[in-house]
Design a protein around this nucleic acid. Structure first.
Lengths: 107, 107
DNA sequence: CAGTTATATAGACAAATGGTTATATTGAGT
DNA sequence: ACTCAATATAACCATTTGTCTATATAACTG
């Protein structure tokens, strides 16, 4: 279930896919239910779902005719780690700037 | 300053750009310093930097000949909000599953 | 079994992306 | 003023991406 950072970020890069995930945050949905809100064709949605599945962001089950999708738990850990690292760097930049300003105002 | 989610996610989708950000988490760097670690040309890096800047992920200052880059603080708020929303949905899915399992085991 | 529904796959195509080389720009050093 | 160093821009090219239509597959429904 380890979602490779690269696949996750690429998957999130498309607004339709982000909207699909947002919809799934409200609970499981079938492919057709996911098609409805959008102006694009069913095959396009199916391809987006395949991308999301390969990125480890969603899971699918088989229910007769349907393939309901839901969010995959733990899909965001690797991304979280990366973003935390960035945030640390941002804070460190702040700290450096603070020191610089302090030094300047001291003279 | 508030980075549009779409630009941020697209920017993060490229591994070279993520590596650039990781380097910048260690502190400011000039364009040439950012070129060195990679096997790609300077113009390619310059383009990546432009993408990152437009996404609001980095800031640049003018220092004579150089354009040092650093991480932009607060660039990730919108993304954080989106990801928090997804995580809530994931937890809710868990909760739903728990209830389902509880119901099953009860009979 | 026949028809309909849900979804996936294939093939085509336009647009976006990421890379290259060549060149322009601008500041620094002599 | 001349040259070098740092960076940006332009023009071009190959690959990837997102979309479509048409069709295939498979499961329900009568």
């Amino acid at each position: 279930m380890h979602a490779p950072l690269d696949a996750v970020c690429s998957a999130l890069a498309d607004p339709t896919r982000r909207a699909i995930l947002a919809r799934l945050a409200a609970g499981e949905a079938t492919v057709n239910e996911l098609v409805e809100p959008f102006e694009i064709s069913q095959p396009a949605i199916s391809r987006h779902l395949r991308v999301l599945e390969h990125a480890g962001l969603i899971l699918r089950r088989v229910d007769g005719n349907r393939r309901p999708c839901r969010l995959a738990p733990d899909a965001l850990h690797e991304l979280d780690d990366y973003l935390s690292m960035l945030k640390k760097g941002m804070e460190a930049n702040y700290a450096r700037l603070d020191r610089l300003l302090a030094k300047r105002s001291r003279r």
